[in-house]
Amino acid sequence: MKAFDYARAASLSDAVGAPACLIAGGTNLLDLMKLEVETPSALMDITRIGLNEITAEGDGLRIGALVTNAACAADPQVRQGWPLLSRAILAGASPQLRNKATTAGNLCQRTRCSYFMDNRSACNKRRPGSGCAALGGINRNHAILGTSDACIATYPGDMAVALAALDAQVKIEGPGGSRRIPLREFHRLPGDDPSRDNVLQPGEVITSVLLPAPVEGRQIYRKVRDRASYAFALVSVAAVLRIEDGTIVQAQLAFGSIAHKPWTDPRVDTLLVGERPSKALFDKAADLLLEGAQGQGGNDFKIPLARRTLAAVLAEATAE
């Protein structure tokens, strides 16, 4: 680990615009700092600035940026109204990591691409312009949607996939003021600048995540992985579905580990609404979802896996 200056922020205003890398849970940042994939020269510890409460806001909920994953998953309000979020958080990492990892930190979690995490390898995300070693390499974990010639990495987390399905918003404080953006627009596609995972600008700090009012219906988080626990997803599906009289009246889907961001496709949601569940409908939804899907060899299987996992989730959500 490269040496750094360490300072503690006393309040949010210390952190906003600070010429330092912010650290809270540290579970991802320190992992990468040990590998010297991240080499900040200054760290600012923001664990003492509050932002660690979950509070009602209208019919929705405000989750402070520094609420730990464990606390969020265990929160009675979250469990009652947004069980999808609890379930997705609990699908990720381990209890120990969830006790440290925070809401904002988890949103900023970096990819698990082995070439990104290995300084010897070409990686446009880590060293812009150096190329992408995952193309033609071991890419079993990589993206099938929204990739570019520059990068095929995935966003590896679970929580954000649920937040995308729930259509949460991210509140951000910057040197120039605050802004609020849909979670679905927080993460970027790699395009020709994969070095940026998300739309945060230098000096900006995530302060909270806002959940809209609870959605009636079934909430399902399905994570397919090699181990039964403590493993990153091969594919995950977050679904909020409401059925009335045998017809789907509301559908909000999001997909994990198949793209550089939690993948949502409003066309798929729209297709499902107004229809009666059937195998043919699930196939049509998958066709639409995977229209532009592109395998890279090692991850070709994710295309049929996403199709089948979607079918499993839709079948479960629409079962009598």
């Binding site: 698990r112 082995s114 090699d226 181990r227 039964a228 626990s229 403590y230 493993a231 990153f232």
Partner: peptide
């Protein structure tokens, strides 16, 4: 993380 020895579950 990536060489998957079995976990409890």
């Amino acid at each position: 993380a990536e060489y998957h020895v079995p976990v409890h579950r």
